[in-house]
Every structure is written in C-alpha cells, then in structure tokens.
Amino acid sequence: MPLSKDRQALILFLILLIGILSFWELGVNLKLFSPLMPSASQTLKDFWGWISDPFFDDGPNDKGIGWHVLVSLRRVSIGFLIGSAIAIPLGILIGLSDVLSKAVDPYIQILKPVSPLAWLPIGLGLLKDSERTALFVIAIASVWPTLINTKLGVSSVDPVYRDIARSLGASKWRTIWKVILPAAAPNIVAGLRISIGIAWLVIVAAEILVGGTGIGYFIWNEWNNLKITSIITAIVVVGLVGLLLDRMFGLLQTWVSFGQKT
C-alpha cells in the first residue's frame, strides 16, 4: 500500500534531521569545521539542559532561558500593542478617504522599507532609556504592515455594505464599528500577523544592541562566553516561539474571516 503524502513528508523530515545531525557530528569529530563548533551530541545535551529547567535564577547573569523569552515576549507585546494602537485607527482613517490615502502614501512608502533598527539611536536620544527604546523600535516595526493592511481592508470593503448602512441612515461611527471594521477584520488581522512576526524578528537584534535582559541579550552574552550550544538553543527557541505567535494570529485570522471569502 502506498504511504500517504503526510507520511512520506514525515519520513523525509526525519531522514533529513538524522542526516544533518550525523553530518554535523561526523564533521566535528573529523575536525572539518572551525574549532569553535560544538558537536551535535554536546549541543543536544546542552539544549536539553536549558529546556528542562527554563526558569532557574542564580543571580542577574545566570538565569534560565525561559525568563529571557518572557522578558522578550513582554517587550514585543507592549511594543506591538502600541504600534497596533497607532496603526489600526490611522489605517481606518486613511482607508476611508481617498485624498488622505494619496497624501500619506509617500510617507508610508518611504518609511516602510527602513529597518526598524535604524530608529534605535533616535529612540535612545529621545527616550534616554534602553527599555523604552526597545519598545519604541518594536512599536515602529509593527506599525507598517498593520497600517497598510488596515488601509487596504477598509478601502476594499464591498461598497454595497456601505450603501446599506447609508440607506438605513446609520451614523458614521455605527457604520465604522458595525460594518467597516468587521468587513475589514480579515485584512487587519493579516496585517497584525505580519507585524508580530517582524516584531519578534527585530527584538533579538534590538536586545543585542540595547542589552540588559531578553533572549537577544542572552544570545550576545553566551557569545561572549563562547557557549555556542547555548546560542543554537536560543535560535531554536526563538524559532519555536515565533512559530507559536504566527499560529495564534493564524487562528485569529480564521476566526474573524468567518463566512467571508478570502
């Protein structure tokens, strides 16, 4: 009997994993790579060490990886909330007015491709505080995709819905709240999903630069200790948390798209 596609993929995935790990282990034993490179077995052992006890606390420079992830998640959440609180109302405003949309578009187009890290020195200069600067950078990182998607969602609401609201004599607020927002919700959440992804991407670099706490700082600190296995652990953890965040917003997306064709 032929295996199902899912089975085939799973088997291939396992073969690849074993292949990579064996090549890695063998390569280190044969001294093919830089002497810094830890062996796969050592990495797995250390990985398990970090993962099995994520919340130990032995002073400021020796904390479990779970604490760092939590600190980073807190920063990302606050920055993301600030960014979204700016992007969604602004996006609605722009989406409702053609003139405003055309007027603001050049600013968005120019600022969107800039790495949020470029704002870091300005943040430091303005806020004079590394914690707030991290939030500032995350907020800026999460503004653009949400802003652009909200604008798109609002301006592409089926005009017939607006006609209905108009013919019923619905107030502007009621129309926005009851008609335009739910109709644009799938697009808005799609924007939020991209934003949280970028925010999580940027937090590592921001924390490396700003220092103190967080998973980015953890990576930098372990690099200074030349503990490569810890860095590899952090990379995998960052990836898993990012995946989780993306899935959460994916669920939210299905939920708000209920019954609407997307």
Binding site: V160, Y161, D163, R166, S167, G169, P182, A183, G259
Partner: peptide, 19 residues
C-alpha cells in the same frame, strides 16, 4: 436628497453581512 429608511432596498447580490 439622499438615502433614507423610508425606502427599503433589496439587492441582487443579497448584500447580507457575512459575519
């Protein structure tokens, strides 16, 4: 002068709010 609830409209595309 404009739309108003004194006129009820039925659309070919139904125009029901899907949510």
């Amino acid at each position: 002068r404009g739309p108003g609830p004194d006129r009820g409209i039925v659309f070919q595309s139904y125009a029901l709010m899907p949510w």
